[in-house]
């Protein structure tokens, strides 16, 4: 019984961590390349979820809710395209002009962008909570184990793993990845050897927001509701996870997210959920005292 309870909490924490990871990846990639904390990233995730809801509702009404797989695929694609175009535009409008400005200015611009997008969705859509259809079906054969971990949770775990593997592959073994790593190390040097830095930065925003959009669809489908404010809370947690793992590092973001997910899950399970957030942040502070750059972060001496 106790082992089963432990397993349930472990899996619950794993799911929660994977949710954070899908959002944290975007934070960490953008930070790695331009050293900007993109506070509007949570809003990109929220826009992804809204787009998927709109597309899925239209498809569901038009063709019925029988082809869940196709609806999931099309609405995820739409969400990704929509989120990517928002992120791309956002970078051009709010961050590119400030690339040479002091870093605080870009940070303020990011906070402004976050508030703008939140209020824009609030006004253009609604302030109400909206139901989100469960796009991931429950499998018949899984029913005996569904009380431990449900099919949508497995889907979240699988997708996070796949996304992480693809990203690692992209960064380690492709030309774009190589250019990204070069830009991260020294952008003016990369420019000198012929890397189109602007393009690489746009690419980073696009990839980061695509993962956030996938996260938006999966999480909304798991939780079953969305409103304009979901991006803020999820974004803060994912940001914490990225810092915990070592901001700038992709495996670090995933590890940090999982650690945060497990911390919250076990603390709630064995002690109390009253102080869940307090404990999570105390834990964060402790880790940062001993490893200021995060679990997998490398502390680099500032280039002069």
């Amino acid at each position: 019984m106790d082992l089963e309870y432990f397993a349930e909490l472990f899996l619950g924490g794993l799911t929660r961590g994977s949710i954070y990871a899908l959002i944290a990846l975007g934070y960490t990639m953008v930070y790695g390349i331009v050293e900007l904390i993109n506070f509007a990233h949570g809003e990109i995730y929220m826009i992804g979820a809204f787009t998927a809801l709109i597309v899925a509702s239209v498809l569901g009404m038009e063709f019925g809710w029988t082809h869940l797989g196709a609806i999931l695929l099309i609405s995820s694609l739409a969400a990704m395209i929509y989120s990517c175009s928002y992120a791309w535009t956002m970078e051009k409008i709010a961050y590119k002009p400030l690339r040479k400005a002091p870093r605080l200015s870009a940070l303020i611009s990011a906070i402004g962008m976050s508030l703008f997008l939140q209020n824009y969705v609030l006004l253009a859509q609604t302030s109400d909570f909206l139901p989100f259809p469960s796009l991931i079906p429950d499998w018949e054969f899984w029913e005996p184990y569904a009380h431990v971990i449900s099919a949508p949770e497995i889907a979240i775990l699988l997708v996070t793993t796949i996304v992480m593997i693809l990203l690692t592959f992209l960064i380690k073994f492709t030309k774009i990845g190589k250019a990204m790593r070069a830009t991260a190390q020294d952008s003016s040097m990369a420019m000198l050897v012929g890397v189109n830095v602007d393009q690489i930065i746009s690419m980073t925003f696009i990839i980061g927001s695509a993962t956030a959009a996938i996260g938006g669809v999966l999480i909304a489908s798991h939780v079953g509701q969305i409103n304009f404010y979901i991006g803020f809370i999820a974004g803060i947690k994912a940001f914490v996870a990225a810092v915990l793992g070592g901001i700038g590092s992709i495996p670090g973001a995933v590890l940090g997210s999982l650690v945060l997910g497990w911390t919250e899950s076990f603390f709630t399970g064995y002690i109390s959920s009253d102080y869940e957030d307090v404990f999570a942040f105390v834990f964060l502070v402790c880790i940062l005292i001993f490893r200021p750059a995060g679990i997998l972060g490398r502390s680099e001496t500032q280039k002069v």
Partner: peptide
């Protein structure tokens, strides 16, 4: 007897606790 965090992305831990 517990308080839950409003707005959290997931309540599976507290739900497991209720079950247990």
């Amino acid at each position: 007897y517990e308080g839950v965090t409003p707005g959290a992305v997931d309540y599976s831990a507290i739900v497991q606790k209720i079950k247990r």
